[in-house]
Design a protein around this nucleic acid. Structure first.
Lengths: 181, 181
DNA sequence: TGCCGTGGAGAACGTTCGTTCTCTAGTGTA
DNA sequence: TACACTAGAGAACGAACGTTCTCCACGGCA
């Protein structure tokens, strides 16, 4: 197994374990066992646990946003904002959905690790920016802010209640805000 | 120092430390030192760390909701829903604001501790129920769900960006939803 | 005074964690 | 064959954690 394959296997394993159970609950030894990468190689790829956590968050950031943007792009321009919430509904319905990995990580390590906090902030800024590109096409004032709030609220609420229809509540709200006089 | 005084001092200390820095980062020894309660007494009051965490969350739940409800009750019935977001703005502006203690705790321990998760779920259900009592007076359909989403979204967003005006964005959104034809 | 029960300070224990070190097996090369 | 190098398995280390135990000082009561 070479360096690159080890890196992706480590990131795959870290993403699964960290998201499922939280970061501090998962030890480096468990990452090693689950990934099949030796400890020596692990510390060659990531010099410390924090580096693995940050890399996991950075990769998840781009993948998450790409998945959302790709789904939305396959809709008519007039339907793209509601489509955001259809994508959220599908995400909320996945087995093992446990809320936003970034919010969870920030709550756990945000006060301790500035690098983790920066990764979380960068992700949320990227999400806001992407949603703003959708909202700006509507000429509805302040829609970008309201869209972002509804997205964040839906993720948080669905994480705790486990109810995917939270996404439909949010979609209904944004449609009311879209169709106002 | 008697049992009751020790209990409140422990809860005060636990609330401050756990909220500031996360739960797993704070050891029982630090709770002991910061509270001035001996370890023996600590384990008399709370038989394990998990019990202290749950007690901290339960007390914070009632205090948080009481504070919000008390603030809102001092407003005219027609202004009570916007008042929710004024209260949030004041909370977001407090030094040391670090988002929702329950969301943070759930992200950290929700997958590990069913008791913590139950406390978080109970809190969020109580918040939704309280907001529903406000929304139901308006006869605007589905306002309870939308209000809850905007509240949760504002808390989450303010926690990451650190920007208290997030509360005003959410208030503007709910006012649009309130005044629709 | 003598005795008993409680309480505090902190040492001690067993475990877990992040990280490093050791040993050995295997591989390519002269 | 002899050698240099890499990689893997896992032991080992030092620190930190949650929890328990030991020791001693003190106060109420006979």
């Amino acid at each position: 197994m070479d360096h690159d394959e080890a890196t992706t296997r480590l990131l795959d394993t870290a993403e699964r374990l960290f998201y499922e159970r939280g970061i501090q609950t998962v030890g480096m030894d468990e990452v090693r066992t689950a990934s099949g990468v030796s400890l020596k190689r692990l510390y060659q790829c990531f010099p410390a646990k924090e580096a693995l956590v940050v890399a996991y968050l950075r990769r998840r950031d781009t993948r998450w946003l790409s998945s959302l943007a790709n789904f939305v792009a396959h809709h008519d321009p007039t339907d793209q904002i509601p489509a955001v919430f259809d994508w959220l509904h599908a995400w909320f319905s996945e087995p093992g959905f446990r809320g936003c990995a970034f919010i969870n990580s920030a709550g756990e390590l945000g006060a301790t690790s500035p690098e983790v906090l920066a990764a979380v902030r960068d992700h949320k800024a990227a999400v806001r920016e992407y949603l703003a590109t959708l909202a700006d096409q509507t000429n509805v004032p302040d829609l970008a802010d309201h869209l972002n709030l509804l997205v964040e609220g839906a993720i948080t609420t669905a994480a705790i209640t486990g109810d995917p229809t939270t996404a439909h509540q949010a979609r209904q709200a944004i449609e009311l805000l879209l169709n106002r006089p």
